[in-house]
Amino acid sequence: MPLSRRALLSTATAAVFAAATAPAVAATGSRLRATAVRHIPLQGAVNVRDLGGYVTYTGGRVRHGLVYRADALGKLTDSDVTTLAGLRLGRAVDFRIPLEVQYDGADRLPAGVVPVSRPITDNGLFGQLLAAIGSRDPVRQEQMLGGGRAAAFMNEVYRSFVTSAANRAQFGLTLRELAGLGSTPSLYHCTSGKDRTGWTSYLLLTALGVPEATAVGDYLASNTFRAAYDAKVREGLKQGGLMQNPDLIIPLQEVRTAYLNTALDEVRTAYGSPFRYLTDGLGLELRTLSRLQDRLVD
C-alpha cells in the first residue's frame, strides 16, 4: 500500500476513535440480531464467532476468516475440533488466568494450531464466583453478590482493562500480532468469551473503522449466544443445592453497556480518547494501525 494511503488510514483511524469519545449507545439501540453475526456453532463452546463481515464507515468490509473470537475451548468434542480445523487457524490466544485453565481445562485444538497463553487478569472475578458458589451459604452469597455488588465488581474488572499496565501490555501485544499475521487466521478467547475477549474485539473493530454502534452490538451479542447456556448453569446451581438464588450471578454472566462505558470513561479520563489509549496506553504505532487496516479490511 502506498505511504500516502497509510497516512490517510492512520488519520481516519484517529477520527473514528475521536468520534468514539461519546458514551456507548444504549443496549436497546445496539443489539445485533443473531443472524447479523457469523456464529460458529459448536457443541462444547457457545460464543465462537468470525469478526469478519462488518462494514466500516468508509464503505470497506472486515475480511471473513482471519480473526475469530471465542469462549473456552477445553470442552470441545471431536466434531468441534474438526470444525475448528476447517478454519485453518495458525494460533489460538488464551486470555485465561491459570486458575481458570485449571478449573475448565486446557484448550482442545486441531493439530498444527499453536496455543498461546496470554493471561489477562479478571481482577479476581473467577475466584470470587467460585467462592460464592462453593460456600453454599445463601446469606454469604447475598453479601458477596447482592445489592448491586456483582455489577460493581464487573465495573472494576472493566476499569482494570485500562488502569493495569500488565493488562494493557497483553491487549497491545494481541493487536500488534493481528496486524502482522498476513493471511494466517487467528483466534483469541477467555472463559466466557465476553469480557476480555469482548474488549479486545471492540478495540479491534473500532480501530478498523467499524461504526461505534456496530462494535457495541458485536459486544452485546454475547448475551444472545450465551443466554441458553447461562440459564442452564443457573438452573443447575439451584437444582444442585448450591444456590437458592442463582440470579445473583446474572450480572457476572452478562455483558452490559454500563460495563463497557466504565472502561471507556476510564480511557477518556486517563488518555483523553480511545485513540490515545491505543497509541499511548497500548503502545501501538500508527503504522501498526495501518497494517491492521491493510490486512483485515477489503
Rank of each mutant, 00 (worst) to 15 (best):
M1F: 00
P2A: 02
A7F: 06
A15S: 14
A18T: 12
A36S: 11
Q43L: 11
G44E: 11
D50N: 07
Y54W: 15
T56D: 02
Y68G: 01
A70P: 02
D71F: 00
L73A: 04
K75F: 07
L76I: 07
T82H: 05
Q102F: 10
D104S: 14
A106D: 15
R108G: 05
P110Y: 08
P110C: 05
A111S: 15
G112H: 10
I120H: 00
N123C: 04
F126Y: 10
G127W: 00
A131D: 11
I133V: 14
G134Y: 03
E142N: 09
M144H: 02
F153Q: 01
V157C: 12
S164Y: 06
N167G: 07
R176Y: 03
L181G: 02
S201D: 12
T214V: 15
T214Q: 13
D218M: 10
D218F: 14
F225G: 03
G241C: 05
Q244A: 15
P251N: 09
E254D: 15
L260T: 06
L260H: 05
T262W: 09
A263K: 10
D265N: 14
Y271H: 15
P274M: 13
Y277V: 11
L284G: 12
L286K: 11
L286C: 06
R291E: 13
D294H: 05
